[in-house]
Design a protein around this nucleic acid. Structure first.
Length: 906
RNA sequence: GGGCGGUUAGCUCAGUUGGUGAGAGCGCUUGCCUUACAAGCAAGAGGUCACUGGUUCGAGUCCAGUACCGCCCACCA
């Protein structure tokens, strides 16, 4: 037999995750635990992981996503559900292209110079070089996803899904090509969707410019604009039809400054009479509002700013070729010279910027491909209003529906080279347009073989929108698709609710005629410890890999989610990570101790009795019910608390309150199991005649590990394995904790009597420790004491006396009057008297008791007034009233004890 | 312009369907290297739950309004 000290010495005092995590992850992988078994008739639990950018590096957002999803996944796997967590990565059109373009620039080249094919080849090289990084980093986190099903958006399958969707939508008239105003990023040289444009307040100037009347140059209209250079593309001036100031201008022409082109004055109710002068210049090719006005009044479009933000030929020989910015300066000078610039006022207004590169976005008219989202949005909104999809937290439902209600068509074509090529070909012979699943070689309408594919690629989010079904094999009818679709939970940050979640719902219903998932769980964003957004520029980023290296994946994961609420932003600080790391160490040492007890006393653990162990739900080293095997009251207490904790955790997990669930397990393990139960167990171990606490120690630890496993997978596995080696064989205990059953509460273990007993014990122990600290009694010095009202303690009476060793007193029961120089600690009816020879202070003691009496009477007064309130008695539920009554009576007992003692001390 | 969230201990945050001496971590004070753990143990201090009004026997929790902070949406020329 190994002695406890030997064994303790063998296990290191400090938990070292770096020695554990890699080995454990590999063993999970080798055993194939991450792959679900399809079990017909059994409802699977499915999460499709948000695919990170293929060339990305793991940041805290990914880590939070993985921590939350892995917790849900592991929980369900332990509950016995066929559980699939499908990982993948996204080609991330613009983001990746921009990175590779920068590489080229360093080599002194541009993508245009090397050409499309060579460029795409370069990106693939890059992807092959770095594409595995983020997957490997997810493994370091302990993510239990099924790597055998990993997908990339540009894989054959998902690519076919993209093409099929495009063709189907085109055939249904839901994809169209049209001339519209789009958001153009001059730096990225591509169109952007409305979502990819970030509006920022910018300090600018509002210029007032005179447009002379064409027939009567003595009269003029003044328009106000922030972008004077666009006037070269004006094709009208608009005023509100009800604006009397301009009624005689309507239908007349004014002369466009600089170009001296006559343009009409039109009446349009979209014009705000309050803003500026009430007259607005109309530049249909460069402003979405003006474009709409032009549509209504049949005005021509004149494009004066080109794709590179330089002035076109249409801007006139004077300005052609200038950058838009230079042109603005120049035109202002020219207008001034012409005395047509009336004034300029400062103005802050919001200007669109490119989400990727922060360049000011240029509204530009051009031919692009659009998805007509209206019908899909209606179906997607209905899925939520009808409750088929639930959004957690609920407040985002309104945000989602509001967006769906006001949705505008989605520009999906991008003038990029990296992405899914648009499956459209144009015939040079007859102008026919071919939309096809397979690459055509000849025109469908004429014999010409002179066809060109549309050069554009699709918005990255187009393929992401298909992710829940394209990853499972759609458009093919696969076993995975039939079994795992629709998924269970879609978990992601609220920042991509519109970009991704909304589109998956639309596209999922469109392609599958069924919702893609039942629940949308949105987590908040992570900020630094000062509430600032983390960014490389600010230099306040914490690197998850560094944290894992230093403190372990468990500490990072726990810190990311503990004490957070769904959808709320949270701050992560080194201190919070350290606190979680400390918890791993606490658990490690408690386990070290329990294991040492098991090693030392291998005879005390009863072999599991099959009939008393409700397998497979709760493998147990002890009979679950006290009747089968009468237990000491402190054992009943900790088992009661364990089961309440299991209830709390399960309820929290069921309602997606992961942060609460973690807190419950944390508090149970630390504050109840470690601080009290283990200490009580030590008292019992000193008495050779007492029943060994080893079985209960082992059981509670083992259950706690399973309870904690979804949040701290590595350390729980490591401890569990060494623990189960020391517990006699049980058929319900598998080789890995991750496939062990999640604890289920046993209502029969809930034991109010034992809990009351423990509360009293803890209060008295605290009270004695308090007095000892106050009186500066040497710590650890044994003090003899007497305990009164011991008989009221019920069946735990004897155990109660022994456990007062927790505050280093040797208590014996008594009913005799106490010596005057004793300090009294009282809780309800029970009193402990400590004769503190030489340390007793008569006046001090009286003062101490008087002040507790004062506090007690305040509380008694409150309860009494409540209990004398007729309304309360008649309207409050009986159990609440009963609770108040019993509180009152126990406090009154305490009061009489205090009064009695004070009288003695007079 | 519209919408949402936050305001609880010095700091960061929880707080289940309203149930009544208000919780955690970190920090602080005091005492302890007590053979599981100093990444720890024990004791303690610290809160008019932003403000005003309402509903209720009872409000941190529900309702209305106010203030400040933050976020999202929107075609502010």
């Amino acid at each position: 037999m190994t002695t406890r000290t030997e064994n303790l010495a063998r296990i290191p005092k400090v938990y070292n995750p770096s020695e554990v995590e890699g080995r454990i992850y590999k063993s999970w992988m080798d055993n194939g635990y991450f792959q679900p078994r399809i079990q017909e008739g059994k409802q699977p639990f499915v999460i499709i992981m948000p695919p990170p950018n293929v060339t990305g590096e793991l940041h805290l957002g990914h880590a939070l996503t993985a921590a939350a999803e892995d917790a849900l996944i592991r929980w369900h796997r332990m509950m016995g559900d066929p559980t699939l967590w499908l990982p993948g990565s996204d080609h991330a059109g613009i983001a990746t292209q921009v990175v590779v373009e920068r590489q080229l620039v360093k080599e002194g080249k541009t993508r245009q110079e090397i050409g499309r094919d060579a460029f795409v080849g370069r990106v693939w090289e890059w992807v092959h070089q770095y594409g595995r990084t983020i997957a490997e980093q997810h493994k370091r986190l302990g993510a239990s996803c099924d790597w055998s099903r990993e997908r990339f958006t540009l894989d054959e399958g998902p690519s076919r899904a993209v093409r099929t969707t495009f063709v189907n939508l085109y055939n249904e008239g839901l994809i169209y090509r049209g001339e519209r105003i789009i958001n153009w990023c001059p730096r990225c040289s591509t169109a952007l969707s409305d979502l990819e444009v970030i509006h920022q307040e910018v300090d600018s100037r509002l210029y007032y410019i005179r447009y002379p009347h064409s027939l009567d140059p003595t009269r003029h209209l003044t328009v106000a604009t922030t972008r004077p250079e666009t006037l070269l593309g004006d094709t009208a001036v608009a005023v509100n039809p009800d604006d009397e100031r301009f009624s005689d201008f309507i239908g007349q022409n004014v002369t466009l400054p600089r170009l001296n082109r006559p343009i009409p004055v039109v009446a349009d109710s979209a014009v705000d009479t309050e803003f500026g002068t009430g007259a607005v210049k109309v530049t249909p090719a460069h402003d979405p509002n003006d474009f709409d006005i032009a549509q209504r009044h049949d005005l021509p479009l004149i494009t004066v700013i080109g794709p590179q933000s330089t002035m076109t030929e249409a801007a006139g020989p004077q300005y052609q070729g200038m950058t838009a910015a230079d042109c603005r300066t120049r035109i202002l000078e020219d207008l001034k010279a012409d005395t047509l610039l009336e004034k300029a006022e400062p103005l802050t207004h919001s200007v669109g910027h490119c989400q990727r590169c922060n360049t000011v976005v240029e509204p530009l008219a051009g031919k692009q491909w659009f998805v007509k989202v209206g019908p899909m949005a209606d179906a997607a909104a209905k899925a939520v209003t009808e409750g088929r999809i639930r959004i957690v937290p609920d407040r985002f439902t309104k945000v989602y529906l509001n967006w769906m209600d006001n949705i505008r068509d989605w520009c999906i074509s991008r003038q990029l080279w990296w992405g899914h090529r648009i499956p459209v070909w144009y015939c040079d012979g007859c102008d026919h347009l071919i939309v096809s699943l397979e690459d055509p070689t000849t025109c469908e309408a004429c014999p010409s073989t002179n066809i060109r594919q549309d050069p554009d690629v699709l918005d990255t989010w187009f393929s992401s929108g298909l992710w829940p079904h394209s990853t499972l094999g759609w458009p093919d009818d696969t076993e995975d698709l039939r079994y795992f679709y629709p998924g269970s939970v879609l978990e992601t940050g609220y920042d991509i609710l519109f970009f991704w979640v909304a589109r998956m719902i639309m596209m999922g219903i469109q392609n599958m005629d069924d919702i893609p998932f039942h629940t949308v769980y949105l987590h908040g964003l992570i900020q630094d410890e000062h509430g600032e957004k983390m960014s490389k520029v600010k230099g306040n980023v914490l690197n998850p890999l560094d944290i894992i290296d230093e403190h372990g994946a468990d500490a990072l994961r726990f810190a990311l989610t503990v004490g957070t609420a769904p959808g709320n932003d949270s701050r992560l600080s080194p201190a919070k990570i350290r606190a979680s790391r400390n918890f791993t160490n606490k658990l490690w040492n408690a386990s070290r101790y329990v294991i040492s007890i098991l090693d030392q006393s291998d005879t005390v653990i009863p072999a599991p009795e099959p009939e008393s162990i409700p397998l497979p739900n709760s493998p147990s080293v002890i009979p679950a019910k006290a009747e089968i095997h009468p237990l000491p009251i402190e054992d009943r207490w900790i088992l009661s608390r364990l089961n309440r904790t299991i209830e709390d955790v399960t309820r929290a997990l069921t309602s997606f309150r992961l942060g609460d669930a973690q807190e419950y397990v944390h508090d149970f393990i630390w504050n109840e199991f470690c601080d009290w139960y283990i200490e009580i167990a030590k008292v019992r171990l000193r008495d050779p005649s007492a029943p060994s606490p080893a079985p209960v120690l082992a059981h509670v630890l083992e259950s706690s590990l399973r309870l904690l496993h979804p949040f701290m997978p590595f350390i729980t596995e490591e401890i569990w394995q060494s623990l189960v080696r020391r517990i006699p064989d049980s058929p319900g205990r598998p080789d890995s904790i991750m496939i062990a059953p999640y604890p289920t509460p046993d209502p029969s273990a809930i034991d109010p009597e034992a809990e009351e007993w423990a509360n009293l014990l803890m209060s008295l122990v605290r009270g004695v420790r308090n007095v000892r600290a106050e009186r500066k009694v040497e710590a650890g010095k044994k003090v003899p004491a007497v305990l009164l009202d011991c008989e009221t303690l019920g069946p735990g009476g004897r155990s109660f006396l022994e456990n007062l060793a927790l505050c280093s007193v040797e208590a014996r029961p008594a009913d005799a009057p106490q010596p005057e120089n004793s300090v009294m600690v009282v809780e309800k009816a029970t009193r402990i008297f400590l004769p503190l020879t030489g340390l007793f202070d008569f006046a001090g003691e009286r003062q101490r008791l008087e002040s507790s009496l004062e506090d007690l009477r305040k509380r008694i007064g409150q309860v009494q007034s409540r209990l004398s309130n007729e309304q309360f008695l008649s309207k409050a539920p009986p159990n609440v009233v009963e609770k108040e009554r019993s509180r009152l009576s126990s406090w009154q007992e305490e009061e009489s004890n205090l009064l009695h003692r004070l009288a003695e001390l007079r």
